[in-house]
Amino acid sequence: MTGPLFAIVARDLRLTLGRGSEGLVTVFFFVLVVSVFALALGGDTALVARAAAGIIWTAAVLSALLTLESVYHRDYADGTLDLLLLSPLSPWHIVAAKMLSHWLLGGALLLPAALVAAPLLFIPAAALPVLLLSLLFGTLYLSLLGGLGAALTLGSRRPGVLLVVIVLPLYTPMLLLGGMAAAAALAEMPVRPYLLLQAALFLAALPLAPAAAAVSLTTNMRSS
């Protein structure tokens, strides 16, 4: 099963990167949002440092939302999704592959981008490992739930706003834990419980989100 799954991921990466700038837009957006915050808060070092975790997480959520609509959209619009769902590969695997490509083209790139953004927000180097680990779970979780949201809104006339309204509430637990983990790291408090809870959220979403999205896509195909 892994061959076909990675064929889908590899094709998504190749086609997206083949279109040039599109692949990196998430990263630039992320760094820009962080810099806008840093600039808008002026030179108040203490204020920026205190808000740093919140700013990083807000920027990560916004940049992931930016590309969610396109998780299935291109394959849906050109009929490839139909043929994929009519292949012997299970819909769960197809959806999981799509979510993995979304993460590789967005969330995964935010980890190095966060390293670039950290000095802008006066985040000390000691807090970086925790921030990165927490962002790793957070971005994976966002791609899973975002892929579910994109599946639910596929074919609707204006999916953008609907998608945000569906995905953001689902994302709040991860956002809370991520913010708390980062705050604890900055205050040099124990971070383990927050990271473990983040990992647990991710592991719960890992089988469930693709399963729900698969049902949604199959139903969508059979009713269109």
Partner: peptide, 28 residues
């Protein structure tokens, strides 16, 4: 094997061989 009435599902950026290769892997 299902042939839709239009050929939209071919990926225009890929070559003919790449298009077929994708499905060959997918269909094992």
């Amino acid at each position: 094997a299902f042939l839709p009435a239009d050929d939209r599902d071919l990926k225009l950026l890929e070559t003919a061989r790449e298009n077929l290769h994708f499905w060959a892997v997918l269909w094992c």
